[in-house]
């Protein structure tokens, strides 16, 4: 039943608005930022371009805010429009809510992954055929791209895959928090804004306290910080997982999904 409900949710989510928004997220940085940074910065390696492309785009600053509109608000919308009441006689509402959460995670994972991986693919594999990006070859002095440099040293392709996965998984955590909060709180705007506020405020607080290595922003987009030990990126990650587990526990305990 869960698989069937997920397929319905995906059908519901995949509309024109979704495709346009996703395409914009995936392609706009490449189309708009790359021409600006090309020639303005000295690039030695493909990963330098990828790093500069992302850090020059609004993606690191607005990360949760860009992904939440994809599908995280769907439960809140259906509750507001009394739609859930008409779902209840047809299936177990707990299955329906779980299916919605999984669909939200799945959709976000794919879009966030492509948002990082498609530019990487272009820079790494397509550009060498068309030679659009200008590389400095005379004087090689590459600057570290941060915490993930260690993977790039093993294999550039592995870097592309692992880093895209890392961003996508973090995206999934943020939209899942937004989704769960939309079940817990009556004010949808507040519920969907909290992950972004968390992203922004904790970044600010860790910066003020000199603990930038634990900033949510720098652990997902670790470009503006010196390479840290790898374990540091898992600290905010674990905090997010604990937050999600607490929210699920609270929803189950308070029977929130029954109170429409």
């Amino acid at each position: 039943m869960l698989k069937h409900l997920i397929s319905i949710e995906l059908k519901k989510a995949l509309n024109l608005r979704f495709f346009l928004f996703s395409l914009a997220l995936i392609l706009l940085p490449l189309i708009t930022i790359l021409p600006i940074i090309n020639g303005s910065y000295v690039f030695h390696r493909t990963i330098d371009v990828h790093e500069q492309l992302l850090s020059s785009s609004p993606i690191p600053l607005l990360f949760p805010l860009l992904l939440i509109p994809l599908y995280a608000g769907s439960y809140a919308n259906e509750k507001k429009d009394n739609y859930l009441q008409y779902v209840m006689p047809r299936t177990k509402i707990s299955d329906y809510v779980v299916a919605k959460g999984i669909s939200n995670a799945l959709i976000t994972f794919i879009v966030a992954y492509l948002m990082i991986y498609i530019p990487f693919l272009f820079i790494q594999y397509i550009d060498p055929m068309i030679n659009y990006i200008y590389y400095e070859t005379a004087f090689m002095n590459p600057v570290s791209i941060g915490t993930f440099e260690v993977i790039a040293q093993e294999s550039v392709h592995l870097y592309g895959v692992v880093y895209s996965l890392w961003v996508a998984i973090n995206g999934v955590l943020y939209v899942t928090i937004a989704y769960l909060l939309s079940i817990c709180l009556n004010n949808t705007f507040v519920a969907l804004s909290i992950p972004f506020l968390w992203w922004f405020i904790i970044h600010f607080v860790t910066s003020v306290l000199g603990l930038e290595k634990f900033s949510p922003l720098y652990t997902v987009f670790p470009f503006a910080i010196a390479a840290q030990q790898f374990w540091t990126i898992f600290i905010p990650f674990i905090v997010l997982i604990l937050f999600i587990v607490s929210l699920i526990f609270y929803i189950k305990r308070s029977r929130k999904i029954w109170e429409n």
Binding site: N77, E78, D81, N82, Y83, L84, Q85, Y86, P89
Partner: peptide
């Protein structure tokens, strides 16, 4: 059971 309770419910978009 077919129901209408309180008000119609719908997916607005």
């Amino acid at each position: 059971f077919g129901i209408i309770i309180d008000k119609p419910g719908y997916l607005g978009d």
